[in-house]
């Protein structure tokens, strides 16, 4: 990776982290509030998600229209919905509901040295290691 590219990655990471923090996605309490649909539901993160999906989708649409050679776009043919996807997503959902942390925000909180993240992130790395060890790399 050249230095210009590294700088863009740094910029993208900073923007992502800032967005997560401002939107409340880095606060486990708010995440659990969002998941608590049968209790005191806090729908705010639905708008965060919708906003992110909208902006990302629009950006991808524009990039595809431009047919530029300078970008490497993600594949348009999705992988099949198999047992591994369903099981993995369900397991992830349980962990997400228990801790209120998903990978991105937990890493952002590690940067802020929040104590939960200091415990969560190494445990997450161990979980990833086991999944990779016993079920192969990503689907």
């Amino acid at each position: 990776m050249n230095s210009e590219r590294s700088f863009l990655f740094f910029l993208a990471g900073t923007l992502f982290g800032t967005g997560l923090a401002i939107s409340g996605m880095t606060d486990p309490g708010r995440v659990i509030g969002f998941l608590d649909v049968f209790g005191a539901w806090d729908p705010a993160l639905l708008f965060v998600m919708a906003g992110a999906v909208g902006v990302y989708g629009l950006g991808m649409l524009i990039l595809r229209r431009l047919k530029t050679q300078n970008f490497k776009l993600p594949a348009t043919t999705p992988s099949p919905i198999d047992r591994q996807l369903v099981t993995g997503a369900a397991i992830f959902g349980i962990g997400w509901g228990l801790g209120g942390f998903c990978p991105g925000p937990s890493l952002a909180n590690l940067g802020a040295l929040r104590i939960e993240a200091v415990v969560f992130v190494p445990a997450m790395a161990i979980g990833m290691f086991f999944a990779q060890r016993f079920f192969g790399v990503d689907r």
């Binding site: 591994q84 099981t87 992830f92 997450m124 790395a125 990833m128 086991f130 999944a131 990503d138």
Partner: peptide
């Protein structure tokens, strides 16, 4: 759980 599920899914 999150690490395992993310990788698997």
């Amino acid at each position: 759980i999150v690490g395992f599920g993310t990788r698997l899914g």
